[in-house]
C-alpha cells in the first residue's frame, strides 16, 4: 500500500462537512501547518476540532475559525485569539474545555484500544459534572472516555514511506498521541525519506498508525512568545 501522497490537498481530499478532527501541536509549536492551509482553501465547514489550543488570529486553527469552518473546539486552553472570543460570546462557536492531561490521555486511550480511563483531574470541579466517579485506594477518579476522531492531522520532523514518524523537541507534544487515535491519520513531515533511512530504534510513531504521509511544502513555524536573554 502506498501511503505517500503528493501534497496536503490530496491528503485531506475526503475530509467532509461536520467531520471530527484531531490536530496536533501545543500553541503554534508542531501544528500541521500544511493541512490547515489546505482545509482553509477547501473551505469545508461544521468541523469539530480536538486540539490543545485554537491558534492565534492569523495562524494555526485561527485561520479556520476566521472562515467560520469550526463548529466546536475541544481544547484545554484557548487564550490567544480575539476572533475565537468573539465567536464564543456570540454563540457561533461551541467550546468544551477539558484538562490538558485528560485531553492527552483520551487520545492515548483511543490509540491503545481502551474505551475509557480514570483520572483524578477535575474531581470536585465542574469538569466532573455528569461523570462517573470511582474510588481507588482512598482517592476519587473520573471516568473519561477515549476520543473518536474521523481524521487525525499530525506534524512530524521526519517520516519515511512506511509512515514511521520522528518528532523534534517539544514539537512532539500531542502529535504521537493523536497519530495513534485517528480513524484515518494524515502525517505531514518536514523531510520524507525512503523506508530504511530512519533508525528503527529512534522512531516515535510506528507507521501502522499512519495512513497518509506527505512532505510539507513549507514551514513557517511561527513563534508565539519570543523570549531571549542578553548575551554575556
Amino acid at each position: 500500500m502506498n501511503k505517500v501522497v503528493d501534497n496536503a490537498d490530496t491528503a485531506i481530499r475526503d475530509i467532509g462537512e461536520n467531520a471530527t478532527l484531531m490536530l496536533g501541536g501545543f500553541g503554534l509549536c508542531g501544528i500541521p501547518e500544511n493541512c490547515i492551509a489546505a482545509l482553509v482553501k477547501k473551505g469545508v465547514g461544521g468541523l469539530t476540532c480536538i486540539s490543545n489550543n485554537a491558534g492565534v488570529d492569523d495562524f494555526g486553527i485561527g485561520l479556520m475559525l476566521k472562515q467560520k469552518q469550526v463548529k466546536k473546539m475541544i481544547s484545554s486552553y484557548v487564550g490567544e485569539n480575539a476572533e475565537f472570543e468573539r465567536q464564543l460570546l456570540s454563540g457561533e462557536l461551541e467550546v468544551e474545555l477539558i484538562p490538558q492531561g485528560t485531553l492527552a490521555t483520551r487520545c492515548l486511550a483511543a490509540g491503545y484500544g481502551m474505551p475509557a480511563v480514570f483520572t483524578p483531574a477535575g474531581v470536585g470541579t465542574e469538569v466532573a459534572e455528569g461523570k462517573e466517579v470511582r474510588r481507588f485506594n482512598d482517592k476519587d477518579y473520573l471516568l473519561e472516555m477515549a476520543f473518536a476522531a474521523d481524521f487525525a492531522l499530525v506534524k512530524a520532523w521526519k517520516g519515511d514511506t512506511e509512515g514511521n514518524l520522528v518528532y523534534k523537541e517539544t514539537a512532539r507534544n500531542f502529535n504521537p498521541l493523536m497519530a495513534m487515535a485517528g480513524r484515518i491519520t494524515i502525517a505531514e513531515v518536514e523531510e520524507l525519506v525512503p523506508a530504511g533511512m530512519l533508525d528503527p530504534d529512534h522512531i516515535h510513531t510506528p507507521g501502522i498508525y499512519v495512513h497518509r504521509i506527505f512532505q510539507g511544502s513549507k514551514y513557517e513555524k511561527r513563534i508565539e512568545q519570543r523570549t531571549v536573554r542578553a548575551r554575556n
Binding site: C29, A104, C107, L108, A121, E169, R222, I223, E224
Partner: peptide, 27 residues
Amino acid sequence: DPDLINAGKQTITTIPGSVFFDSAMSF
C-alpha cells in the same frame, strides 16, 4: 528555536540531561 518552547509558549533551551516526551507521558 520554534520547536523548543515551554508551557507558557516561550522560547527556551535545553541543558545537559534534558529529555523530550509526549503530552500523555508528561501528565
